[in-house]
Measured scan of single mutants.
Amino acid sequence: MALNTPQITPTKKITVRAIGEELPRGDYQRCPQCDMLFSLPEINSHQSAYCPRCQAKIRDGRDWSLTRLAAMAFTMLLLMPFAWGEPLLHIWLLGIRIDANVMQGIWQMTKQGDAITGSMVFFCVIGAPLILVTSIAYLWFGNRLGMNLRPVLLMLERLKEWVMLDIYLVGIGVASIKVQDYAHIQAGVGLFSFVALVILTTVTLSHLNVEELWERFYPQRPATRRDEKLRVCLGCHFTGYPDQRGRCPRCHIPLRLRRRHSLQKCWAALLASIVLLLPANLLPISIIYLNGGRQEDTILSGIMSLASSNIAVAGIVFIASILVPFTKVIVMFTLLLSIHFKCQQGLRTRILLLRMVTWIGRWSMLDLFVISLTMSLINRDQILAFTMGPAAFYFGAAVILTILAVEWLDSRLLWDAHESGNARFDD
């Protein structure tokens, strides 16, 4: 018995066209964080690309023209004298008006014999932002004059995390709450300039795509075929072959399989920071003279006294001054041990922890910024005066060393310790 099946006739004509040209192939790229070699397709503007294995951002879609970056830099340069030299806060102490600005706080630190601690604050609040705007201006002028731009481009990517104007702005709020127990506070004209400078700096850093600047100024022929001998440069993120001198053909720094002496430098910085954190938390970090009496505060006791007036601000200072430094030390110690013992479990967790400490590390400088600003506000000789204690130097040095330890660690070593050939990683 035959089955009668109805015929289905399409209502619209289906047209099949042959592909007349070869589909576009992607360029081969190595991930600078996990060293995976993959094919990167062509990316349009405002599109980002991520590593298929570790999800690290390979290409950032946010990109401004150099002219727009230069305009932002010149605007920031105009704001800087007002943000640093004009009063941020006014207080009335014992019937006398006192003005506080950024430069005055750094000068008070240096004047009291601790120039190293003052230079830490100076670099993060004044030096690094000033280098940022002058570097962008150098790129703008240098591109037109045919100057060598490689050193500036190499420095810009590392400079971003040292620009800490946003953290200093939080420190202004913390210092205001600490001082309000002794005097009446009012915002100064410099505060508005400083807030504007923070906003412009944040926007500029978020749109400063150094890798795209490398592509514009020093374009290189990408690798179009897969080759395990391809290496990625950690300076400019170019994937290719080393030249005859073993250097990256684009930025001219040595092109090595792994960062040289990464573990040794990381261990040295980490152990030194552990040693410095002990006096930083045991010795007094601030000293207040009130009517001839002397009151010393460690980091913890200062947080407890701050909690009596504002528990939320005390929580912020606790996280930045105690929780973050010790968390960074514990995480980095764990990561280094996992590399030495070739741990194969929990790779995803370790990668996330490394990215976390990379982002939060700079916030530990908050305590030094609060001390710097408070020193310029309260300084009335023996009637009422505020000065920093010996722990300030140890704390600042420990924070900087932990930042350097994270920067010096080559994250690809975590993958080397893991089993080879993993296309995915999980716990």
Rank of each mutant, 00 (worst) to 15 (best):
P6L: 09
T9V: 13
P10T: 11
K12N: 12
T15F: 09
V16T: 12
I19C: 10
P24T: 08
G26N: 10
Q29P: 08
P32V: 14
Q33R: 15
S39H: 13
S39M: 12
H46M: 11
H46L: 13
Q47Y: 15
Q47L: 12
C51W: 02
C54R: 00
A56E: 12
I58R: 12
D63F: 15
D63C: 15
S65G: 11
L69T: 06
L69W: 13
M72I: 06
L78V: 05
L78K: 01
L79P: 04
L79K: 01
A83W: 03
V102Y: 09
V102I: 06
Q104G: 07
I106T: 06
M109K: 02
Q112Y: 05
T117N: 01
S119F: 02
S119N: 02
F122E: 11
I131Q: 00
I136D: 01
A137K: 09
A137L: 08
A137F: 15
Y138W: 07
F141L: 13
F141D: 00
F141E: 01
N148K: 04
L149W: 02
R150L: 03
R150K: 14
P151H: 05
P151I: 01
V152G: 04
L154T: 06
L154M: 04
E157Q: 15
W162Q: 01
L165I: 11
I167V: 11
I172W: 02
G173E: 00
A175F: 01
D181T: 03
Q186G: 10
Q186K: 13
G190Q: 02
L191E: 10
F192V: 08
F194E: 15
A196S: 15
L197P: 01
T202K: 15
T202M: 15
N209P: 08
E211C: 12
E212G: 15
W214H: 11
R216V: 08
T224D: 09
R226F: 13
D227S: 15
V232Q: 13
C236K: 00
Y241F: 13
P242R: 11
Q244R: 12
G246P: 05
R250N: 04
L255M: 10
L255E: 03
C266Q: 01
S273I: 06
S273L: 03
S273F: 01
S273Q: 04
V275S: 04
L277A: 08
L277M: 07
L278E: 11
L278M: 12
P279Q: 08
P284S: 09
I288N: 00
L290V: 13
L290K: 01
L290R: 01
L290H: 06
N291T: 12
G302W: 00
G302D: 00
M304R: 11
M304D: 15
S305T: 10
A312M: 08
V313N: 15
G315D: 02
F318N: 14
F318P: 00
I319M: 11
A320T: 11
S321D: 00
S321K: 00
I322N: 13
V329C: 10
I330C: 12
M332N: 07
F333T: 10
F333G: 09
L337I: 14
C343A: 11
Q345N: 05
Q345W: 15
L347H: 12
L347N: 15
I351D: 12
V357M: 13
T358Q: 11
T358D: 09
G361F: 06
R362L: 02
R362K: 09
R362C: 06
D367G: 00
I371D: 00
S372M: 15
S372A: 10
L373N: 03
L384V: 07
A385E: 03
P390V: 06
F393Y: 07
F393D: 03
F395W: 06
I400A: 15
I400N: 05
L404Q: 15
A405P: 03
D410H: 00
S411R: 13
A417M: 10
H418Q: 08
F425Q: 13
D427Q: 15
